[in-house]
Design a protein around this nucleic acid. Structure first.
Ligand code: SF4
Ligand code: SF4
Lengths: 135, 135
DNA sequence: CCCTAAAAGGATATAAACAGTCTTTTTGGT
DNA sequence: ACCAAAAAGACTGTTTATATCCTTTTAGGG
């Protein structure tokens, strides 16, 4: 359980690759896709999402491409993952306790909150700078 | 992401209910299902899985039903969850590093291992005794 | 021995999510 | 004007989730 989807895995690979490049250099989507071994059309969708929320900057037309939206040390793995996979939610009741009428006296509920917190802490503690291969 | 499925949620509800009963009393599936608000046919499938690995004991025929396979303090939430949802695997490479040819010099890989470890620790630290409503 | 209660097992149905492709549009550079 | 590249949206095939039947097996009680 708790498996990252392909999309999530691809997203990380792609943006980590970007983080390994000079901050001011734009990269072609096709180059990134090839480098990280991801279907280009799929990676395009992912980077569109990134672009919308500013995680990456995109440039169209000739000489266009992508670069990081912020310095790599200011982007956490948590942000990247949540951008494409949605929030870390071990159980629906963590997001909306009112959904489950049992939540008031449920002893399991706090466990899921704790799981969420731990996972967020691990992922939030890692930046793209830590992850880029050539630091 | 990382969401528990209905099956997992139902499984926990069902077995936690059992844990709240006397250890030597068998409970009808239909009663459990009604008490925890789960479709009986679905819960049946779940308890069949539990039964196979000994998490619960089942008795057929008149006067049959289910009871815990072990004392509630000896069953962890981790066991219950993994029984129905499979192992905690934030990413496939955690189970099979050889699947990904990048795993040798991938800085993300150890992060997923850490996530797995943290989650397992949280879930493994909670027993059914802790979870049962009337202790 | 038969009847009934109850779980086990297997087959099926529906819907949602995942994984990816294709086509068209917009934008920027030359 | 033309070309290069990303954006946007529609579309498809596959797999997983969420169940619901139906039949079979097992056990107890009269
Ligand atoms: S029963 Fe408890 S753990 Fe399950 S959804 Fe409700 S509050 Fe959450
Ligand atoms: S690239 Fe790294 S994190 Fe992704 S699957 Fe391979 S080893 Fe795991």
């Amino acid at each position: 359980m708790m498996e990252l989807t392909r999309k999530g895995e691809y997203a990380i690979r792609g943006i980590v690759y970007l983080a390994g490049k000079q901050t001011d250099k734009v990269c072609l989507l096709s180059d990134i896709a090839e480098a990280v071994n991801v279907p280009p059309t799929f990676l395009a969708k992912i980077f569109q999402q990134f672009s919308k929320i500013g995680l990456v900057k995109s440039y169209r037309g000739t000489g266009g491409g992508f670069m990081l939206g912020r310095p790599p040390e200011q982007i956490t793995l948590l942000e990247v993952v949540e951008a494409v996979e949605g929030p870390i939610l071990p159980n629906r009741c963590v997001a909306a306790p009112t959904d489950c009428e049992r939540s008031c006296d449920c002893n399991v509920h706090p466990v899921w909150q704790r799981v969420q917190s731990e996972v967020r802490q691990v992922l939030g503690g890692v930046s793209l700078k830590d992850l880029a291969i050539c630091k």
